[in-house]
Amino acid sequence: HSLRVHINGKDFEVHNADEHVIRALEELIRRGADADELKEFLERWKG
């Protein structure tokens, strides 16, 4: 899957995101994670 996440006016393109990554991202958003947390998660995932 390809996923586009809009954080703090920046678009993050997440390519080849598997279900696990997408679910983790949705969980963060549901918990009310702020932009920094989401960005950190995506950067860690992209490795």
Rank of each mutant, 00 (worst) to 15 (best):
H1Q: 13
H1D: 11
H1L: 07
H1R: 03
H1I: 11
S2Y: 12
S2I: 14
S2R: 04
L3H: 11
L3I: 15
L3P: 01
L3A: 02
R4K: 15
R4P: 05
R4V: 15
R4H: 15
R4A: 15
V5M: 02
V5G: 01
V5Q: 01
V5N: 00
V5T: 02
V5R: 00
V5I: 13
V5E: 01
H6C: 04
H6W: 07
H6V: 13
H6M: 06
H6P: 03
I7C: 01
I7F: 05
I7P: 00
I7E: 00
N8H: 08
N8I: 02
N8C: 13
N8P: 01
G9H: 01
G9Q: 01
G9V: 01
G9N: 02
G9E: 02
K10C: 03
D11R: 07
D11G: 04
D11Y: 14
D11Q: 09
D11F: 12
F12C: 01
F12I: 08
F12Y: 15
F12E: 02
F12R: 00
F12N: 00
F12P: 00
E13A: 05
E13Q: 07
E13V: 14
E13D: 06
V14K: 00
V14N: 00
V14W: 04
V14D: 00
V14L: 10
H15Q: 08
H15Y: 11
H15L: 12
H15N: 12
H15V: 11
N16S: 09
N16P: 04
A17I: 10
A17V: 14
A17P: 08
A17E: 10
A17H: 04
D18I: 03
D18C: 09
D18T: 10
D18K: 06
D18F: 04
E19Y: 12
E19H: 10
E19S: 10
E19I: 14
E19F: 05
H20E: 08
H20T: 14
H20L: 12
H20I: 11
V21C: 03
V21K: 04
V21N: 02
V21Y: 03
V21Q: 06
V21H: 04
I22D: 01
I22Y: 06
I22S: 02
I22C: 02
I22N: 02
I22W: 05
R23S: 10
R23L: 12
R23K: 13
A24G: 10
A24Q: 10
A24R: 12
A24V: 10
L25G: 00
L25M: 06
L25H: 01
L25F: 13
E26C: 07
E26G: 05
E26R: 10
E26Y: 11
E26N: 09
E26F: 12
E26I: 12
E27D: 13
E27A: 09
E27K: 07
E27R: 05
E27G: 06
L28F: 06
L28T: 01
L28V: 03
L28I: 10
L28N: 01
I29A: 04
I29Y: 06
I29P: 00
I29W: 06
R30Y: 10
R30I: 10
R30Q: 11
R30N: 13
R30T: 10
R30A: 14
R30L: 14
R31F: 10
R31E: 13
R31Y: 10
R31Q: 14
R31K: 14
G32M: 04
G32F: 03
G32N: 09
G32E: 05
G32V: 02
A33Q: 03
A33M: 06
A33F: 08
A33N: 03
A33E: 03
D34M: 07
D34F: 05
D34I: 05
D34Y: 05
A35R: 05
A35W: 14
A35Q: 09
D36F: 08
D36L: 11
D36A: 11
D36N: 10
D36Q: 10
E37D: 13
E37I: 08
E37N: 05
E37H: 08
E37V: 07
E37M: 09
L38W: 05
L38P: 00
L38E: 00
K39Q: 10
K39D: 11
K39F: 15
K39I: 15
E40T: 12
E40H: 08
E40V: 12
E40D: 14
E40A: 06
F41W: 10
F41D: 00
F41I: 07
F41A: 12
F41S: 04
F41L: 07
F41C: 02
F41G: 01
L42V: 14
L42M: 11
E43Y: 05
E43T: 05
E43L: 11
R44I: 13
R44P: 04
R44M: 15
R44D: 13
W45S: 03
W45P: 02
W45N: 05
K46W: 15
K46N: 15
K46E: 15
K46H: 14
K46T: 15
K46G: 15
K46R: 04
K46Q: 15
G47C: 07
G47L: 11
G47R: 02
G47D: 14
G47S: 08
G47P: 14
G47W: 07
